[in-house]
Design a protein around this nucleic acid. Structure first.
Lengths: 136, 136
DNA sequence: TTTCCGCTTTACGTTAACGTAAACTTCCTC
DNA sequence: GAGGAAGTTTACGTTAACGTAAAGCGGAAA
């Protein structure tokens, strides 16, 4: 059962996710990615690719790279710390969950406002059409 | 029927929303707020207060101040433009709605990951407790 | 061999969203 | 009328997240 260890070059990842290579190297600099090397050249694994997805997802939610890095250590740190550490982790998890809940509420509100704006916009368009009708 | 036109000072708003006065003046600079003046001093209306809420909500969703300003003009521009303008507005509205939908998906994914992390964390805590039990 | 392509490092530049400090008015109050 | 509290303008500083340019390395193709 040979593992199909597909790997990626930096420009492959860049074009797939539509970011620059500069960004990808920057993420590594910030401790978000840890590609291996063949000589000087960076080699990205499937795991790194998954990381990229997660990074971009975090960014779309307005998280900073530092926060995303913290979430990563939450994620892959096999929880083997002291009880104090573990409780701290639980704390952070609940904190993040609260942020997401707030965002859900915010999104709902903005959606309502968009509904409203769209309705008024549609009304204005209808108004224009009926005026055109009268003119003909 | 005297309108109860409550007004606010800059520091009142600042403490209520837990931002600095510098930020509030900056938002004005960027065209997000338009307080009236008594002499030099800024006077904020209830409408301005509502604006503040919307600004912070937008920020929590990761919008830039420029985007928020655009949403504002979407919002209070009585849709009285040309048909071309109105169609453009509809376009922008749908664009923003798509962004929000994407965020909803992203939030759902991150929530799953948090669930996962919390479970592993809880398991590790249980593990610690049972070990303590054995030791006693 | 040269030349080009993709990758690398190094390093300075840029934008957004404020922070922070200085110097000044206004109004109250002691 | 001296001081303090709260407001103002002006302006330079700061951080995050890259952009951009310069200079160099290694392989392959002409």
């Amino acid at each position: 059962m040979a593992e199909k260890q597909r790997s990626y070059s930096i420009s492959e990842l860049a074009s797939e996710f539509d970011v620059t290579t500069r960004s990808i190297r920057f993420y590594e600099d910030q401790g978000l990615l840890h590609p291996t090397r063949r000589g000087q050249t960076r080699i990205y694994s499937r795991q790194d690719r998954v990381r990229m997805k997660l990074i971009l997802r975090g960014k779309r939610l307005g998280f900073s790279l530092a926060e995303i890095r913290d979430l990563f250590s939450l994620w892959d740190e096999t929880p083997s710390g002291s009880q104090k550490q573990l409780n701290l982790l639980m704390e952070i998890i609940h904190q993040k969950r609260a942020e997401l809940d707030q965002q859900l509420k915010d999104i709902a509100m903005v959606q309502l406002e968009l509904d409203n704006a769209e309705r008024r916009c549609r009304d204005a368009l209808d108004e224009l059409r009926t005026q055109k009708q009268k003119a003909s």
